[in-house]
């Protein structure tokens, strides 16, 4: 199941983070990359297999303070709009 799969570009930050968290927890995977799909208004997430349980994910506007450890900074579609965000791993 691991690999690169599309994710809706219409989600809020909270729901995108929840979608990625659910994926990691349920599919025994870990998000390694997140970006926009250059061909469509949607995002692409890349995952690898991960046997150990990881903390949840949180997404906030780039530069905003958040709990956890920042995994990556990227540009994604949030509610259909390109947005610069930071992805955090919660403890």
């Amino acid at each position: 199941m691991a690999g690169t799969v599309p994710v809706s570009g219409d989600l809020t930050m909270d729901n995108l983070a929840a979608t990625l968290t659910r994926r990691e927890q349920s599919a025994f995977e870990q998000v390694t990359a997140l970006s926009i799909d250059p061909a469509q208004t949607r995002n692409l997430v890349t995952t690898v297999s991960q046997p150990q349980q990881l903390g949840g994910l949180s997404i906030c506007a780039a530069g905003a303070a958040s709990q956890g450890t920042k995994i990556l900074s990227t540009t994604v579609y949030i509610s259909g709009t390109k947005t610069n965000v930071d992805l955090y791993r919660l403890p």
Binding site: L20, Q53, G56
Partner: peptide, 18 residues
């Protein structure tokens, strides 16, 4: 197929199960 969109509640359920 796109990832099934999740809500914060569903993410919590997934964490609980896991």
């Amino acid at each position: 197929k796109e990832l099934t969109p999740g809500t914060p509640d569903q993410a919590k359920q997934a964490v609980t199960i896991r």
